[in-house]
Amino acid sequence: MSALVASRPNSAPSSPGRGTTRRSAASRLSWLRRWVSPLAIVLVWQLLSDAGVIPEDKIASPAQIGATAWQLTKDGTLGDATLVSVQRVLAGFAVGAVIGLVLAVVAGVSRIGEDTVDPPMQMLRTLPHFGLIPLFIVWMGIGEAPKIALIAMGVAFPLYLNTFSGIRSIDRRMTEAAVTMGLTRRQRLRHVVIPGALPQALVGLRQSLGVAWLSLIVAETVSADSGLGYMINHAREFLQTDVIVVGLAVYSILGLATDSLVRLIERRALAWRS
């Protein structure tokens, strides 16, 4: 699961000038060097599989996994399963994000809002939300609803907590300056509060997307009749370790993709911090 919370690479901007070509060549070399050990591991894995040291019913060989991935892609199984899973995450994320952000703004901009919203949120956040699965099944059965609820629950809290603290950390003196410029409450929200809370809110977004994928995997593993989780569970019954690995790889890729998306948004929206 570590792929879902990939660490931020040190993206040092290459400065323009004469030394650029040589420096970027050097950095390309070090980039290549970082691929040597992963490729070596895959190569050893393949050799051990070929020699029969690693049994296929424990884990398939890289070549076998590659072939299966190609096969599953060609016959549409993988695409359909991925689509179903992505839709679940989108639905759950949308519900959770709206709840988290609205509550954060309500709690962030008014004292009464904070006193009303924050105590229950602080209490609920200590609940391990996966522990709620039995209750969700009792309430909603085993269809789509409990899965989406689980994802929404996982998304709402990190977004709420980060956005709320982002709003609270805004320098009061900025807001005061806006008052002296005659800005209305709504204008202050738009020009001071929201942009001021954005860096912290984006941290919350990254966390919440990580939790969203994690929640999806747990929900689909508990029960599913479609999606990536179903594909993986189905493969387990037939000891198809190659299919299981393909499913896991897709989970990782999806997690990485959303994470890079947020990083892209951060680079664009927080350019002023560099």
């Binding site: 320098d171 003196r173 900025m174 005061e176 300056a177 806006a178 002296t180 410029m181 005659g182 800005l183 209305t184 204008q187 020009h191 001071v192 942009p195 001021g196 954005l198 927080l270 002023w272 911090r273």
Partner: peptide, 24 residues
């Protein structure tokens, strides 16, 4: 008002900071 600290909004360029005073 001009305060002891400049109190500029860091996420707006210099121009857009000054512009804010003319919003209404």
């Amino acid at each position: 008002v001009a305060f002891q600290e400049p109190r500029l909004l860091p996420w707006r360029t210099v121009e857009r900071n000054v512009e804010l005073a003319l919003l209404n």
